[in-house]
Design a binder for these strands. Sequence first.
RNA 1: GGGUCCGUGGUCUAGUGGUAUGACGCGACCCUUACAAGGUCGAGGUCGGCGGUUCAAUUCCGCCCGGGCCCACCA
Length: 797
Amino acid sequence: MALDLHAMEEKWQKAWEKDKTYKFDAKSKKPTYSIDTPPPTVSGVMHMGHAFAFTQQDFIARYKRMQGFEVFQPFGFDNNGLATALMVEKKLKIRQSDYSREEFIKLVLEHTREQEKLMEERFREIGLSVDWTLIYRTIDKLARKTAQYSFLDLHKKDRLYQKEAPTMWCPKCGTAVAQAELEGRDIDSTFNDIVFKTEDGKDVVIATTRPELLPSCVAVFVNPKDKRYKHLVGKNLTVPLFEMKVPVIADPRADPEKGTGIVMCCTFGDQTDMEWYFAHSLPMVISISQHGKMTEKAGKYAGLSIKNARREITKDLKEAGLLVKQQPITHTVNVHERCKTEMEILHTKQWFVRYLDLKDEYIAKGEALQWIPKHMKSRYNNWINGLQWDWCISRQRFYGVPFPVWYCKKCRKPKLASEKELPVDPIKDKPKGKCECGGTEFEPENDTFDTWFTSSLTPQINGKWVEDKKFFKKIFPMDLRPQGHDIIALWAFNTIVKSLFHQQQLPWKTITINGWALDSKGKKMSKSLGNVIEPRKMIEKYSADVLRYWAGLPTLGEDVPFQEKELVAGKKFVTKVYNAARFVSSACEGLGKVSESKLKLWPEDKWILSRLNSVKKESTEAMESYEFSKCLNPVRNFFWLEFADYYIEEVKHRIYGENKESKKAAQFVLRKVLWETNLLLAPFLPHIAEEIAHGMFKNLLKEKSIHLEHWPKIEEEMINPKAEELGKAIAEIISAMRKQKSQAGRPLNTVVKKAVVTVPEPEKLKCAEETIKQTMKVESLEFKKGDTISVETKLAE
RNA sequence: GGGUCCGUGGUCUAGUGGUAUGACGCGACCCUUACAAGGUCGAGGUCGGCGGUUCAAUUCCGCCCGGGCCCACCA
């Protein structure tokens, strides 16, 4: 009887939905286990990486539920941010500028709702034990309210400032960005050796990749130890084409090895330029506008794009004979992670969260957090140690959560919304009351929050921090944050920062960092490479349980190449479990309650019960430390290689035999092992586990779902090393006999006329004589003493 | 350049101070009353390289090579 896995899985998914099996009950007396579920970006599509990570999260959720926790596992959608705005514009063929912010947000929420539905269907197909009534969105009302409340709270705690300062800026998106949004990219460029003139008309050659910044040149730097240029320090040089005079200054940050060893400082070509600007109180000459055009400071080049200006200026230098050499190079440049545009440092007014002063505390708190795998903590530390900028949280973007801020027209002071008004859109809403100065006229802050300003509040959003203090107390701090290693610096770090400011404690007890699902060759799956495999295709071809099996194999945190053959193996395993369950179920027909103490156990019974408990112990410890693969692997091997391959074969004769006493013991053990391994497998293979439980062992179910049953308890008294040793020896002997039958080309049910078994301690195996004889159909069995186990057989004709 | 992880039969992996787990693939045999979408058995590895510690190293230490990721590197 073949089982239709797809129909079976669909049946149980519907049943779980109908029975509200995974519903979070806030009134439950059980201890809460809360999970800070990552919100996938709304795109309508589920990737293999999603399936991978969310399934791993679900293993934990299901395990904790079976350990008696009331599991809070919500689901989220990230529909805040640039990616979403662009997607909606494209799909609906609209421009956000044609709408008010509130209208646009409404539109996005409506539109993404459809995409969410599609995604929700996909995510449901992998059998997540999510409470689907707990869905949050990073731009819906609660998220906006929470983010704005967070802003007010940070303001109250004196953690916010607004400042005109050099800021990382994306000229394409026309907005400030945070350090965490930068990405290093190798870009081809040209080293241009440009001639500056000394006051007495001599040439000084300076190498630069950015000749378009010549109009912003405010100084020239040399290393104080560099003898070649010592004579220039304190003198002025003339900037070619632009003819202004700039001083030569000595500073150790100038690298004599790079370029010509003498470097121009512009406001601002890079971070060092900025440091020099502050360190040497240099003037500021901004020649690039917020939209990436040259300003009037660039003279005749004003209005050109950066690229065009670079070309024109290079051309003019060449014509003037001031460009002596050009050399192609590749260098790493910071680009905006969203649009891959090269970053500029511009002087603009932005809101910042002041947080650089607390680096030590972040590190200390990071120590107090349980990181799994442990080494991921060093990425967090690494990031904090390298932090150089306060968190710039304002974005000159239209779509996002608006700042709850207006400015007094009279005194320019910011006026913040009051908590009760939240969420507000200052463009549409008016502030309540007057300014401190008495002013009554205000203009809105047009900026929106960095999306991470909101995403870093998922524990507060899900815990209803701003709406239900009692609920929040139940949920927060959360037990688990599962997430990818790519966003440790962004999501994990910012969430920790926010909770430290708002709640003065860590947002979670444990953070698990999952790896990536790669293609079979270990490359990242991406549309452009054409190596994307959709989980859905694999579910259709195999099944959800099979896909989950694949996700359960690797160690948490490992990147895993997707090998379809592992699904083949998974499918075989699911089939095996089902078939074995069918056998056990039919073998145990009519078996009611059993009084354990009255059973007379055979050696193989003691062996498998001992092994069962060893495996329970091993797998429970593994799950407790979030090492689910160390649970699944041993359970799988135990089930298949010991229980199915040996134990079942060893007791068949008792099941089919006449002796009621021996049959009952075998039945009891079969049922117990099957039932308990099925429980151990339930977090991994929830559908087939439920099918087996309901279809074959319904009388053992105490709850309406196997997923609400308790995780098997370890029975230490059943762990018996001697029984395990004996069981292993029996298996070895059986295997040796199988080998001889196999090598003789005979079926396994061939009768063995006579067998001589050599073992180190024959007397210990005496009790297993009947088991071996019956299992291998041996007519006459003799034990001999010898150093190693070996078997001689005479097969029937 | 700094950090970190990884490198085990054809492929993917488990694991450990005493030469190794399982899977997929491969070969042979077997239609044995749970399972032929199966079973049994088998072949296949100098556990990246070099040195060191040790009675003993794949496992510990150092260096090197190769790969991934994070950070830095923008003259």
